[in-house]
Write a protein that binds this DNA or RNA. Sequence first.
DNA 1: TGATTATTTGGCGTAATATGCAAATAGGTT
DNA 2: AACCTATTTGCATATTACGCCAAATAATCA
Lengths: 106, 106
Amino acid sequence: MEPQVKRRYEAKANVIKAMAHPTRLFLVDELSRGEHCVMDLAAMVGDDVSTVSRHLSILKNAGIITDEQRGTQVFYSVRVPCVLNFFSCVEGVLAADLEERSCALR
Amino acid sequence: MEPQVKRRYEAKANVIKAMAHPTRLFLVDELSRGEHCVMDLAAMVGDDVSTVSRHLSILKNAGIITDEQRGTQVFYSVRVPCVLNFFSCVEGVLAADLEERSCALR
DNA sequence: TGATTATTTGGCGTAATATGCAAATAGGTT
DNA sequence: AACCTATTTGCATATTACGCCAAATAATCA
């Protein structure tokens, strides 16, 4: 594979990698319904604030979410709505898995 | 977060995690255009056959691709077409990043 | 300025992932 | 059976990701 093509796939993988974590998936899901600040998200998730902050910075770095500072708080929100399509597709994959498994039992 | 909800997000993240690698992204892209056997894919990628075989098993395990043995060869193909939507969305994210960066220069 | 609150970053231990080589497995052929 | 070919798996190693604590940074307010 040519290095140019390879770099392109690496860039794409980087975006997907940002979504490839249960907490970050939850964050995107939650932020798609409206903006939230870090401490509120941390409370929902149940992890340390620093951990959630790192997850958010990964998502922001990948270009999936944006932030806006208001006072001492930073409010995050989803920047690219199409990532929500991931969810329905992934549900489809999981559903297909279930079906296949139940077929195998017959 | 309740353990039930958490497990759900873990399952979803697992599917996305399977796509979160440049080589595996390439494999899905290539397989979406038609089935291929392992050694052919390994030649395209330029990695060891065993490495590619492992990547394929991860994708298969996630429910994204299927395999079919014919003779000594195993042919893989995409099982859930909607994963291809990932690509266009990811392109969108990368394009938005570029635009933002060029805006910042003005 | 000093105190308070929210967020980010450094450091560190631990866990997961990636990759190639060599060996094992499986199907086909002679 | 022995042999060849394609694929998978065991193992060792290197790299990367996680998550918390503590410290640093930033904005606000008394």
